[in-house]
Write a protein that binds this DNA or RNA. Structure first.
Lengths: 206, 206
DNA sequence: CAAATATACTTAACACTGTTAAGTTTCCAA
DNA sequence: TTGGAAACTTAACAGTGTTAAGTATATTTG
């Protein structure tokens, strides 16, 4: 009989509407203001109902974190069109920074907050979302090394270095550490620093 | 009469013992567990007494953040012995990473957490601690540019780039994003990436 | 068809958090 | 000795994540 299946579907609907509400609160009010109670209020259920569909708050944040990676991956798709691996890495950097600037909350959840990572530790799972994205970078770095565009010894270490450079620029900016510069310059520092970054990369691009 | 002066001194003593207790809790239990009540318990005063000596929690965290910068500055002192500006920058990087690894909580407070920065926004002050440290980097970058060690257009942008690179490596590591690598490699990734970083710097060191 | 059970959801509560207003104690000066 | 200022505490507010227990509702079973 299809009753159980109908119920299954109904459960899925509520699970998804919880996630939708969580996303709305998260994007409107930010990480700190995303509480179980505020999500519950949005879907007009009691706070405890949420625990029947998600193990805890971290599970919800992990789901949102995964959404962020899907969004980033979609932005990265255009990079397949770039033939030259060094140019592809440069373009990746532009996409990455643009993503961090346009979706600072998603970015924070994906690369800074500890909450979503707790879920992995509990379930002894691997960080698929992060690994897939990093694989994309590694692929291009590998090509660059083979073609003499980059002087790294180790693909993973080199990829991590490039990633960290962009992450550092975005994170310091997001966390207000650009205050080491005057206000005018603060606003454009990420773009300025990225320009210097490209300069360094080009020094090897023969 | 010296009574008022004695009282002044006593107030200062309590203010400092609050900060000491805050530091102890912070270093023992971490940022999240550093609550007003836990600090109060340590000094055996009521939680509200703390508000007679510090405006709010952010003010205490800012004070701890400043301590962190003092500690970092002391570790940076040895760099004055390094004559060559590029070598000095490399050594700065080593000191910076070592500091981040040995004092992850201080590092987080100084460069990641938003809390200490709120104090600046409220009081319309400048970030002296950050600026002083950044000035040290800018000085060496300027020298490197003059002597042809680094190809930057802009001293501040170049300095920010170098800072961001190290910060990114430390922050991604601290926030568990090294999980893109296998466990074995995760542990040494910062050192490995730093080695690649030095390689890139050396490419200009003629 | 009625009783028992399983499902879905809510209420109330616990143990916390930062912060403030009001009340109490302590101490010093007039 | 009394008045008042200063130092400190109590109680409370409004919020947090989370859990145990209770309540309807719907489904299955006798």
């Amino acid at each position: 009989m299809g009753i159980n299946e109908r119920k299954e579907r109904e459960k899925e609907v509520l699970q998804k509407s919880i996630l939708t509400a969580a996303r709305e609160v998260f994007l409107e009010k930010g990480f700190d203001q995303t509480s179980i109670r505020s999500i519950a209020q949005k879907i007009e259920y009691s706070p405890t109902t949420i625990y029947l569909y998600y193990k805890d708050k971290d599970a919800i944040l992990f789901a949102l974190h995964s959404e962020g990676f899907q969004l980033l991956a979609s932005k990265m798709e255009v990079l397949n069109l770039v033939e030259n691996p060094l140019e592809r890495i440069k373009a990746m950097g532009r996409v990455y920074i643009r993503f961090a600037m346009e979706h600072p909350d998603y970015y924070d959840l994906m690369f800074v907050q500890k909450s979503p990572m707790n879920k992995l530790d509990e379930d002894h799972e691997v960080w698929q979302e992060g690994m897939s994205t990093f694989d994309g970078l590694k692929f291009s770095v590998q090509q660059c090394m083979e073609q003499g565009y980059l002087p790294f010894n180790d693909v993973e270490a080199g990829s991590y270095l490039l990633w960290a450079t962009l992450h550092g620029m975005c994170n310091l900016y997001d966390r207000g550490r650009c205050k080491v510069l005057d206000e005018e310059k603060s606003e454009q520092i990420v773009d300025l620093a990225f320009a210097e970054f490209l300069k360094m990369l080009d020094a090897f691009g023969r």
